[in-house]
Amino acid sequence: MENTPSNIDITFITINYNSSHHTIAVVESIIAHTLNDCNYEIIVVDNASEFEDYTHLHDTISSFPRVSIIRNRINNGFAGGNMLGVNSAHGKYYFFINNDCLFLNDVGSIMKRYLDGHSNIAVATAKITDKKGHFSSSYKQFPSVIKQWFGNSVHRQLSSKPFPSNKVRLEAPTAVEIISGSCMFFRAEEFNAIGGFDTVFFLYCEEEDICKRVWNNGKEIYFLPEAEVFHVGGGSSIRNIALEKEFYISYTLLIDKHFSCFERLLIKTALVLKQFRRIFTKKNGLSLFLFVASGAPIHESLRYQQSVR
Rank of each mutant, 00 (worst) to 15 (best):
Lys268Tyr: 04
Pro164Ser: 01
Glu171Pro: 01
Asp9Gln: 14
Val272Pro: 01
Glu50Leu: 12
Asn120Ile: 11
Phe163Tyr: 15
Asp256Asn: 15
Gln305Glu: 05
Ser68Arg: 08
Pro164Ala: 07
Glu189Arg: 11
Ile30Asn: 06
Ser49Cys: 09
Val44Trp: 10
Arg303Tyr: 00
Pro65Gly: 08
Phe51Trp: 01
Asp46Phe: 10
Phe95Glu: 03
Pro164Ile: 08
Thr269Phe: 12
Phe280Met: 14
Arg213Ile: 02
Ile255His: 05
His134Arg: 15
Glu208Met: 15
Phe51Ile: 09
Thr34Gly: 07
Cys38Glu: 02
Ser138Gln: 05
Lys161Gln: 13
Arg303Trp: 00
Cys183Glu: 04
Asn240Arg: 09
Ser260Trp: 07
Asn192Cys: 07
Phe78Ala: 15
Arg213Glu: 03
Phe103Asp: 04
Ser20Trp: 04
Ile15Arg: 10
Ser153Gly: 10
Arg113Gly: 06
Ile267Trp: 02
Met1Ala: 14
Val45Ser: 10
Ile178Ser: 03
Tyr204Leu: 12
Glu300Asp: 04
Asn216Gly: 00
His258Glu: 01
Arg309Phe: 04
Asn152Asp: 14
Asn47Lys: 15
Asn240Leu: 03
His56Asn: 14
Phe262Gln: 12
Val154Asp: 00
Ala124Asn: 03
Asn75Lys: 13
Gly196Lys: 09
Asn3Val: 14
Asn75Val: 09
Ile13Val: 01
Arg71Asp: 04
Lys219Val: 02
Val229Asp: 03
Phe163Asn: 08
Val44Thr: 02
Leu266Asp: 06
Lys92Ser: 09
Gln306His: 01
Ala25Asn: 00
Thr125Trp: 01
Ile69Gly: 14
Ala124Arg: 03
Ile210Tyr: 07
Tyr222Gly: 09
Leu286Asp: 00
Ser180Gly: 05
Asp256Met: 11
Asn217Arg: 11
Leu57Asn: 10
Cys38Tyr: 03
Phe186Trp: 14
Gly133Thr: 05
Glu52Arg: 12
